[in-house]
Design a protein around this nucleic acid. Sequence first.
DNA 1: TATGAATGAGCTTTCATTCAT
DNA 2: CATGAATGAAAGCTCATTCAT
Lengths: 219, 219, 219, 219
Amino acid sequence: MPREKTKAALPAELRSRDAERSQQAILLAARDEFAQHGLGGARVDSIAQRADVNKRLIYYYFKSKDDLFLAVLEQAYADIRAAENKLNLREMPPAQAIQRLTQFTWEYYIAHPEFLTLLNSENLHQGRHLAMSSRVRDTNSPLIQTLAEILERGRQEGLFRGGVDPIQLYVSIAGMAYFYLSNNHTLSAIFGRDLMTPKAHHERLSHMCDVILGYVLRS
Amino acid sequence: MPREKTKAALPAELRSRDAERSQQAILLAARDEFAQHGLGGARVDSIAQRADVNKRLIYYYFKSKDDLFLAVLEQAYADIRAAENKLNLREMPPAQAIQRLTQFTWEYYIAHPEFLTLLNSENLHQGRHLAMSSRVRDTNSPLIQTLAEILERGRQEGLFRGGVDPIQLYVSIAGMAYFYLSNNHTLSAIFGRDLMTPKAHHERLSHMCDVILGYVLRS
Amino acid sequence: MPREKTKAALPAELRSRDAERSQQAILLAARDEFAQHGLGGARVDSIAQRADVNKRLIYYYFKSKDDLFLAVLEQAYADIRAAENKLNLREMPPAQAIQRLTQFTWEYYIAHPEFLTLLNSENLHQGRHLAMSSRVRDTNSPLIQTLAEILERGRQEGLFRGGVDPIQLYVSIAGMAYFYLSNNHTLSAIFGRDLMTPKAHHERLSHMCDVILGYVLRS
Amino acid sequence: MPREKTKAALPAELRSRDAERSQQAILLAARDEFAQHGLGGARVDSIAQRADVNKRLIYYYFKSKDDLFLAVLEQAYADIRAAENKLNLREMPPAQAIQRLTQFTWEYYIAHPEFLTLLNSENLHQGRHLAMSSRVRDTNSPLIQTLAEILERGRQEGLFRGGVDPIQLYVSIAGMAYFYLSNNHTLSAIFGRDLMTPKAHHERLSHMCDVILGYVLRS
DNA sequence: TATGAATGAGCTTTCATTCAT
DNA sequence: CATGAATGAAAGCTCATTCAT
């Protein structure tokens, strides 16, 4: 009896999950394809092959390549925000919280290079897709809110300097990590130094912490 | 004799000036097209139209779209290096030199958004083009060399902390500026704040100087 | 017992009424879709949406898009023939009957623009569908028969000229109305005159009556 | 020496005519394809094959399928207007001119069935293409102008009735011919009579002349 | 009777690139 | 130095239709 028939024998509630499974498969395949080739360079055929679904199904669930890209982008943001939420920064002493956020950002970017490439693509397209997404806008305030609280707490405890804009700080942390990793190819070419060895990674994180803490800590 | 032939009859030095002019026009048009749409999204037809030359001519001077992209990229790097050289950082007091470099980087990125997009594209393509260019690799050591000297001078004067890696520092300065500007579309969407007003620009530069100087200066 | 199953438990005559309702809904939706976009341009998806039924149901009741088109066409012919039958032309004086038929044809075409478009489509496809329908062929002789009788009656009364072919006459009446209305878009574009105002409509009908009666009436 | 090279040996002014030749070939092929299958049913591949050119070339010269359709339509109108102009109706006695126009219209439609199908398609699409063409609008007034003069001349000579709108008359002539020919498939199916025999054609023209002249001639 | 999931074939269109002079 | 004509390959997307329950 052929293995493929098993699916047909599953009870309805399992069968009906096929739809979701297909959608998930498409989403994951698309994420990888977009990450590797950017929005323009990605091929819908390729995504279909990766996801092992009929190409037509992609258009059945997602209306177009652009809509699919947006879905991937939204998922990527949802993922990183979820990971950030698990950090429980509020429950840490201020300095440790800042360091933890820095380290987390660095390590998340390393573990999820596709996130960087997706951002890269989206910015090449001037944030066209994200601008149409309400889902993303909503999930981001919490982090900035948390960061603001930490900064305020640190200030009250006499540890941190005052007047630090949490958005500026977050952008600086992200920027130092993002630029190093996202532009590692051009930087490597220019400086003739391999930036992606474990040692180099460790040095970068160390430098970032020095810079960020050197800034927020009262001197 | 038909009027159109006149041009061919011009002395060689004038004709070759035409040639150079065409090449320059193509290069500029390509820069703008690549900056607006990225490598993948750029259209050779569009470049020809912008440069007001026949499409075939592009292939005559530059071998392919990729080669053209590399030429544009090399030019962009040459431009920024030339501008950096004009700063005469060596002749400034250390702290001022660091601040000047930070300010310059910020302002150059703002004045040359195409540089960011070009870098963006090149990194999306994993530095494929730059890897083939010897021209770029050579022009960058001087800046890092200068930065190293400044840091050393500052340390000797007792102003700066020791052990600062000039490459790390440069990457941090560039990263803080690059991320803010290159990702301004996504950041704006996420934070619901217009990052491109003059006031916002001024605040960002101010923040960057605080962070960078807060780091290098001995506390 | 789940609530959704209730429908299945209904007595047969109620269930089948649902079935008929679905079929009718499909037929009406298809008529509108075909009228608006022609056979080739009509979308089965669109029909399903208009009819608010599952697309699969369309294939359940009608075998294919073409079969559905034929069903719509047959219905359209049945409708106009039924309306013609209600005219009771036989009971009118000959000249009045001819005028009434002219007026009716004109007004029916105006009230049922979809009929024109359906004919249009069918003829673009060389009458392929109608050729397979016995139902249509049968319902048309009566009108021509009636028209023949009227013409003969008029001739006997000394009012009408002799030798008028009822089919030729009917085709002329229909043609004068059909061309004006069906081609109104191109005619409007060409003549730069809006042919669809009430005034224009009235003038056209008046012209048609003049032509037709001017022809049949003995001079 | 291979035959294909001959083309390359032609002088430039002949070579350069290739472009026009290709465009003409595409136009003719498109006319036939559109006539046979309508706008929606026509296949660009098929047109390329008929014209014996690369499909890409179609998009090189005409921007899109729709633009190509418009070009075909404009050509078709230009052709019939040119033929009408050759009739020299102005130089005939009024009654003969009307009869000649009727006969010409009938015979032109028979000789150019593609004209009818093109009109048919365009009207199915609500005159969308023609509405964008200034070229067509301009070429049509002359005919109506001529017709108006003929009617006026006939009236002054005491032959024709007064108050005849030339546009109405033209639409009636065209309509009687168009409907019979364009809808011959459905009419044949309905009446069970072959309308396309030479005898039937002759009878139809005879009937049309009777109707039209019966209308314009003073009784 | 009714339906959500899935598909193969084929469509129009795009694009970097070459031909031929 | 310069160009108009031409193309092969492949892209995104559409559509009528069937599968499996």
